[in-house]
Structures are given as structure tokens and as C-alpha cells.
Amino acid sequence: MESIKSQQVTFKVFRFNEETDYLPYYNTYVLDVTHEEVVLDILNRIKWDHDGSLSYRRSCRHGICGVCSIKVNGKGILACKSRLFDLVEVFGNEIIIEPLSTKRVVKDLIIDKKDFWDKHASVKPYLVSEIEEHPASEHLVSPHDAEKLLEADYCIQCGACHYSCPALAINEEFIGPAAFAAAYRFSADVRDEASLQRLHTVNEEAQGVWDCVKCMECAEVCPKDVNPIEKITKLHNMVFEAGIAKNNVATRHAVGFAHSIQKHGLLDEGELVRYSEGNIGVMKHIPEAIAMFAKGKIVMPWNMPKSKNLDEVKKLIKSSSTVKF
């Protein structure tokens, strides 16, 4: 591959102007691409050599400002950081260039990111701290404490994760991976004093961390390796540690695993649903349970399999548990 210095690529570029178009359409360009070119170079070439009306955002050209994020063949990328040759290797010679969200287009590749910024603002993405106006010395954070941020502060707010998150695409209240990463970043900061408030925000039903489907899309797409889902897990932990976990279906679902493993080593699937939903909530699963029972998919309590050496598991749960519910 390295010996190939240029190759022909077909670009299909999403076009839409809120003010004049009913429907979006795609313009096709066939261009020779060199091995050092990134997607932003191509957008510039299209704009400068073919169609000056093509609109897209760019500023730093160094993967720092986060405005050039778009989708290529469905994958969120920074246009200024992604080499064409790498993309062609994955997607082939037809490259489809689209905005991060086709629902939010203002013009061509430019979207209205208001929902992103609103969600971001909702988690207080800044340090909240009473500080002296004229401190005598610097407020130092030890390397050990800085490590706890898990590089969540690398986020450049490009929105690639936000507009790749399937939970958010369906449930508009969901705060979303980037804002969760920010919530973690400031709540994990030893100088911060608003952590409890933030944890309450991310603990709410529908908008909070509980509605994440754990698809790992955010970890995959992030161009800065922020790994938002890792921070979401941390927020779950912090909610339990802070003792503010509500007694609801979501929290019981997490805790139920510990109960079940304690008893059987394995998960008692039926009991997990009953415990999570409660005796009334569980009723709505009855039709499903009957259908499953008829096909031999439900193990009766007296037949529940158990791990061999279960006493080891019990002992470890006793000695290694770090939280209480």
C-alpha cells in the first residue's frame, strides 16, 4: 500500500440548504487523492476547484478545535485528522461524506449543535469551587489525583460520540456520552465542590447514565480516546458510593447481579427481572415469560444451576465488595 502515492476515489457529498431545498441530495466527484491528504484537503479542493457553495466547518486543522467533525461512510471522524488512504482501506473507493446528524443540518455539512451544547451545559462542565481572590500560593493537584481524571479532559467537544449514540438518537432526553464524560471530568477533580449536584443530574431516569445501552459506539468513535463509556461506568459507581442511588428498576438491575451471584454463582435470570421490576412491575413480562416457558427457556427455582466451588464465590463477595446499597 505504502508504495501507492495516489489513487482515484469517488466522493458522494451530502448537500442541503435549509433555505432553498426541500430534500437533501448528493454531489459526486471523482478525484485523484494522494497518500498524505486528509478529508479536509478534499473538502477544500471541492470548494476551491469545483463548487464554492459547499459549506463545512474548519478552523485549527490540528485536531484541536473539534469543529470539523463529520461522518464518512457512517463513521464519525475529524476531517482534518483522517487520512483518505486509511478510510479507503476500510470502506473502499466510494467515500460518502455526510454531516454528523442529517436531522440537524443547517447547510451541507454544517449542523446546529444546540442540543449538544445544552446537554453539555446541563452538567456544569467547569470547576465549582470557593477560592480566595488573592491566594498566596498555587492550588496544586498531585499527579496521583490528576490521574483520576482518566484523560477525560482531552475532550474537544467535537460531538462525534454524541451523534453516534443510539440511545440519544431515540431518547432525546438522554444527556449523552460527551456530557457524561465532562460530568465525570469535573466531579472527579479533587478541587471541585459540585460533584453531588452533577451526580444527581446523571442519576435521573431517562436523561441519566442508566439509559445507556452499552453499545460502545462512543468509545469507538472518539478521535481523542476519551472513552466516554468508561466514565459512564465511573459515574454509576460514584452514584452508588455517594449513597444517592434511588431504589428503582435500573439500580436494582445492577445490584441484583450481586445478589444472584452470591446465591448461585450464576445469574438467576427470572429472579433478576422480578427483583428489578418489583412484584407489580414484573407482571408486564408475563406474556413473554409464558412464551419462553413453553419453549423450555425458563429454569424453575428448584432447577437453578449453581457454580462448582460456590463457597469460593461467596467468600470473595464477602471480602471484595466495596459498596453497599
Partner: peptide, 10 residues
Amino acid sequence: SHLQDYDDFL
């Protein structure tokens, strides 16, 4: 992927 939300170390 749920137990770790409750107790990561366990």
C-alpha cells in the same frame, strides 16, 4: 456489564 456499575472491584 451491570455488576461493574455497582461494584467494579468485585
